[in-house]
Design a protein around this nucleic acid. Structure first.
Lengths: 145, 145
DNA sequence: GGAAATTTGTTGATATAATCAACTAAAATA
DNA sequence: TATTTTAGTTGATTATATCAACAAATTTCC
């Protein structure tokens, strides 16, 4: 097993993070890549809670709590009471957050186009499918305790 | 483009890092995943310099300098003068480092087996090839300045 | 040969990301 | 109702990454 598979995967995710940060930094805000990823989760889910972000991004809840606090401080999101659970609050994206999301998606498309150069649609479909399979396998392993 | 490709990639690399760290932590040393990856680079290259690690792992040279310092302090590697460049030193893995590398490889094989469950050899070959292609595309983009 | 530019590595300061443990309050369960 | 679980917060700490300034050796170019 001299496979460099993992090294390629690590390289891809780091370069992606760098690209996102520079795309966002160009738009100046005191937030990082994790904030953007969390914001994207909030935007995608309806009735998103902090705990939902924890599950989707597989992050520590302490880390998420701080990210949410900072997104609120930056006025990118707002929170309102959860109708069925007083411990929890529902997060939603505000106007400025929507703008940032649009920039994020544009950056993502650009990066996606860059990284998929020379690859066919069927290659990419296969790749995504296998990537999901691997991610699921590892998740199952982590949840074994 | 609603592809979750990037999210899968990020998930895989994070779970890998976690797995490596817990495999190493089990073996108790004051070092992290980056130290292990750097050590692996040193082990793989003959006449490895700090700069070589910088290039292979695409890390900041300041970060590498500190990792090397810590690997030296932990007695996992040693350095000797570079015969053709007085600025530079050649790094090599010491006995304890070799032991750690063996543990690392064992952990890597285990993780690799976990993550590839249910995938065929040809799927993995394709996947690795495409991953390398994507990594190269992104690298070319970063080097454009 | 020598000045200028580049490369290699070090250090300081700081930012970002992740981890762990203790804790509160609400909710679910038994 | 008593116990356990869940959602979130906070404090403390570690790990990882970034940027700028610097020294010393090497290379480039005239």
């Amino acid at each position: 097993m001299h496979s460099q598979l993992i090294e390629h995967i690590i390289a891809i995710s780091e370069r992606f993070r760098i690209s996102i940060r520079s795309a966002i930094n160009a738009n100046e805000l005191g937030i990082g890549a994790m904030h953007v990823r969390s914001l994207a989760v909030i935007a995608q889910s309806d009735a998103c809670t902090a705990n939902h972000i924890v599950n989707v991004l597989a992050r520590d809840k302490a880390q998420v709590a701080r990210i949410v606090k900072e997104l609120l401080a930056a006025d990118l999101i707002e929170k309102c009471a959860h109708p069925e659970d007083k411990r929890s609050q529902i997060l939603s994206v505000k106007a400025e957050g929507q703008t940032l999301m649009a920039q994020f998606h544009a950056a993502k498309v650009e990066i996606y186009n860059q990284m998929t150069q020379g690859l066919s649609g069927s290659q990419l479909r296969d790749f995504e499918h296998i990537a999901q399979c691997i991610a699921d396998n590892l998740l199952a392993e982590l949840n074994k305790d």
